[in-house]
Design a protein around this nucleic acid. Structure first.
Lengths: 159, 159
DNA sequence: GTCGATGCAAAGAATTTGCAGGACC
DNA sequence: GGTCCTGCAAATTCTTTGCATCGAC
């Protein structure tokens, strides 16, 4: 009951997402390729957000170097199809993460003001409030983002 | 009862904020200057967020041209002191807005996916949910941002 | 074979920084 | 008068694009 629900977030979407994303692209008429598959697999294996540069680095380490332009192109493609979410982190490069089209891994983030660490969390009350809010606004709402900023446990005390 | 609470948001902070901001800088040892005052006054007069480029344009129109570098420097200064909030809007340039240090004009934004229009709103339930959430997380939370994305009334229907 | 996918290098944007001159206290 | 403030131009950083080539179907 006092279990932190942050535990539920931050889990890699894994193989299921890999398959969903691959199938989605295939059905939409895109070709499959080694590099694209490598990017998808990398995204699926990550518990947290990554910048394009970090992906480039990791892909090289994994033995499948992919040009940064291709990484950006792949991310844009996946983001358009709702399979990837792009998070803007202030002045820093954007970070990306896999998203289930069903919304089943839906979550938000806490960012440390000091070290920049990004921690995912889920909160049903928050989602409920946003759900009610959507009905009240004139806008139709397709997505929402919540970012909390503060000191992470390690940096706590400093500002 | 069915009054949209969006009405409460989107009001310029006005002269009071101008005074608070000016006093804050003065007390912190910064000098007052015509350009800086012009930026502060512009921010105080705006109901909505502005990019640095837009401010440059408006300041020129108002007869007090200010270099874009100075605008960025002033905004950074004010943001550090919590008098200005910086909003990242996807790939677009960041937008800035005046913020009362007391939090009394606290609000969030809905962004139209199509035309990019930014509309402020306030929602007590949402704030309540975030307040409870803060107590639960290991992080100390100093600020939070919520962005909803969807179609504004004018663009409704399109995606 | 055709057309999409890729890498490299160049282009673009947004924001920051160095530096010389002007303004404020 | 010393120091902060400014503008301009140059530098940075992130992201996108053009183009020739390679690979998938």
């Amino acid at each position: 009951m006092s279990t932190k629900s942050t535990k539920r977030a931050g889990t890699p979407v894994g193989e299921r997402w890999t398959e969903i994303a691959s199938a989605d692209l295939r059905e939409a008429g895109y070709r499959s390729s080694k590099r694209r598959a490598a990017v998808i697999e990398l995204l699926a294996s990550q518990a947290c957000v990554l910048s394009a540069a970090e992906m480039s680095e990791l892909l090289r380490e994994r033995g499948t170097p992919v040009g940064i332009a291709t990484i950006y192109r792949t991310l844009e493609l996946l983001a358009q199809r709702g399979l990837v979410h792009r998070l803007e982190m202030g002045t820093d490069p954007a970070r990306f993460e896999a998203a289930m089209p069903t919304g089943e891994n839906h979550h938000h983030h806490v960012v440390c003001n000091r070290c920049g660490e990004v921690t995912p969390f889920v909160d049903p009350d928050l989602e409920r409030a946003i759900g009610k809010l959507e009905k009240r606004l004139d806008h139709s709402i397709g997505a929402h983002e919540v970012v909390l900023r503060g000191g992470c446990p390690d940096c706590m005390g400093a500002r």
